[in-house]
Write a protein that binds this DNA or RNA. Structure first.
Length: 565
DNA sequence: CTGGGGACGGGGCCC
DNA sequence: CGGGCCCCGTCCCCA
């Protein structure tokens, strides 16, 4: 018995020893394995970083080469892309990390090429970064004390740490703002990227690089500021985006989310170049809209947007509005740039801008189009070029917009002269070929094609092409009804309405139905009546021809009108 | 409840 | 700048 007990004890000891030995071997192997794994991972990270750098360089070189060509061709938007791209390229050495912060030097309203961009590279590998761009309120911006901190916050990380690091880790010092405490009106834009790695910012494919530039709508104000894209482009070369603008790159336009809230409008000037003066499109008084509305502008929103500009008096008669919304730049090898504006974010007016870009691009890249293009045809025509020449910025923007209206091809390229010009009407509309006696009438007329509505109501956001129509509209707000009926006490705001009303007293019914004997005082009522004669009303009265949609209606009608069944 | 007509408000476009 | 005409939408009333 005792022997068996000793044997069992020995066996247990041996077993424990064996287990311990096995564990030791496993641990050793595991340690070696982990070491090898860590080394492999390290090498993998290094190679990946090198690959990203190479990709970035390729992208940068190709884009710069292409955009440089575009700059030579005086492409203003290309210049913007180039500026932005340079910003990215400068930071490429720091982009390999998953976290970084761009801190703009204080006292500057815009990023400049000669300004160092301080980058605080962290070690986070979060898959979601939030870039918060803070600019000072309107007062601070006006006094030159504007500061801008562009931060990218790693998920789960204390934002105060980022602020501290951003403020302390770079020079010159940056005035950071508490993101939650300040009740002052300010501008805040936050951008959420789904992917935080560099390849989410710049995606390089085999032969295609896609840069998506969120380019806020710009208002280039001032009559002396030519809308000529060439001039704008050249001036913007040394004129990076002001805080009122955004030049942001997104790697994945499908997943990006842009939120922006503007509590105050402000005008910003970049550097000392007055040509780079822009004003934001929103006025706090006239535009209680956030970017949520702005990014999804319907035509009405667009009208509201523009109306604030005119009602503010920012634009004189010759003022101009340049609107460029979200633009995707596709660089395909050495092919010409094509500009695609996301139409889902655009209203009707903005679609015109997209067409403007596309069309202008095609004009300058396609010699065939150039040969027959109305643009060049117009340039070659002394009459029109004189009336709407480059010296007239307003005319120029109309000029461009006209070229891009939807019916341009039929009217201009087709060359069909419908009404033509005469000696007393030598000024022609290049769209409908109508003749006018003076330049101003051409411009007013072309608002029909361009959608330009310079006259905005101060009470609401309605806009009109003519001052007289605005005056008429404002009677809606004033309640003024200067046209009174002599037969009754009715008053009307429009003379036409009074005239129409007076048919009630005269009994005149100028609108007669061709299908029956019904007559109407108003054309609209006749039009409504004509629906009775459509197939939707299959039951007709045999006496008067009146039709009904239901047999019961016809029976009631015949019973009451004709006393029959 | 529905269809139809009368009438008005507002804006677009042209002259 | 104003007038004129037109269109569309809407409301009201009646059958």
């Amino acid at each position: 018995m005792v022997f068996h007990t000793q044997i069992a004890s020995i066996m247990e000891v041996l077993a424990n020893a064996a287990v311990a030995e096995i564990c030791k071997v496993v641990d050793d192997d595991y340690a070696v394995f982990r070491l090898e794994m860590s080394q492999s991972q390290k090498e993998n990270r290094t190679l990946r970083r090198k690959l990203q750098l190479l990709e970035l360089k390729v992208v940068r070189e190709r884009a710069e080469r292409t955009i440089r060509d575009r700059v030579r061709a005086s492409r203003p938007c290309s210049v913007k892309i180039l500026d932005q791209y340079r910003g990215m390229a400068r930071a490429e050495g720091h982009l390999a990390g998953g976290h970084m912060s761009f801190v703009k030097p204080v006292g500057h309203h815009a990023w400049r090429d000669d300004q160092p961009i301080a980058i605080d590279e962290g070690s986070g590998t979060s898959t979601q970064h939030v870039i918060v761009i803070e600019s000072a309120d309107a007062e601070a911006a006006g006094s030159g004390g504007s500061s801008l901190v562009k931060q990218e916050r790693t998920e789960g990380e204390d934002p105060r740490d980022i602020q501290t690091r951003a403020a302390a880790g770079v020079a010159p010092p940056v005035a950071t703002e508490d993101l939650t405490a300040s009740p002052q009106p300010r501008t805040r834009r936050s951008i959420t990227e789904v992917s935080g790695m560099l390849d989410a910012v710049l995606k390089s494919e085999t032969d295609t690089e896609t840069l998506t530039v969120m380019h806020r709508r710009l208002l280039h104000t001032g009559s002396d500021h030519r809308s000529d894209p060439e001039i704008l482009g050249l001036r913007r070369l040394g004129c990076p985006p002001a805080p009122g603008l955004e030049y942001l790159l997104y790697g994945n336009p499908n997943t990006r989310t842009v939120h922006s809230h503007r509590d105050s409008g402000y005008a910003l000037e970049t550097g000392n170049d007055p040509s780079c003066s822009y004003t934001t499109e929103m006025d706090p008084g006239n535009m209680p809209l956030g970017l949520e509305t702005q990014t999804d502008l319907s035509r009405g929103d667009w009208n509201r947007y523009s109306s604030s500009v005119y009602s503010e008096g920012c634009l004189d008669k010759k003022g101009e509005v340049i609107v460029v919304d979200e633009v995707t730049v596709k660089v395909e090898g050495d092919a010409p740039l094509t500009w695609n504006v996301d139409e889902t974010h655009l209203g009707e007016g903005l679609s015109q801008d997209r067409a403007l870009l596309d069309y202008r691009e095609s004009l300058e890249t396609n010699p065939n189009i150039e040969t027959h293009s109305p643009l060049h045809a117009l340039r070659d025509r002394d009459l029109v070029s004189t009336s709407m020449g480059p010296s007239d910025s307003h005319g120029r923007i109309l000029f461009d917009q006209v070229l891009n209206s939807k019916d341009q091809g039929a009217q201009v390229l087709g060359g069909g002269a419908t009404s033509g010009g005469s000696k007393d009407k030598p000024f022609l509309c290049m769209l409908c070929n109508k003749g006018f006696s003076c330049l101003q009438k051409v411009e007013i007329h072309q608002r029909v094609h361009t959608g330009v509505k310079p006259f905005s109501c101060t009470q609401c956001h309605m806009r009109f092409t003519e001052a007289g129509k605005l005056k008429r509209h404002q009677r809606v707000h004033t309640g003024e009804k200067p046209f009174s009926c002599t037969q009754c006490q009715m008053c009307f705001a429009q003379a036409g309405h009074l005239k129409r009303h007076q048919r009630v007293h005269t009994g005149e019914k100028p609108y007669s139905c061709p299908q029956c004997h019904m007559r109407f005082t108003q054309a609209g009522n006749l039009k409504m009546h004509l629906k009775v004669h459509t197939g939707e009303r299959p039951f007709a009265c045999t006496h008067c021809g009146k039709r009904f949609s239901e047999r019961s209606y016809l029976r009631i009608h015949q019973l009451k009108k004709h006393s029959t069944l």
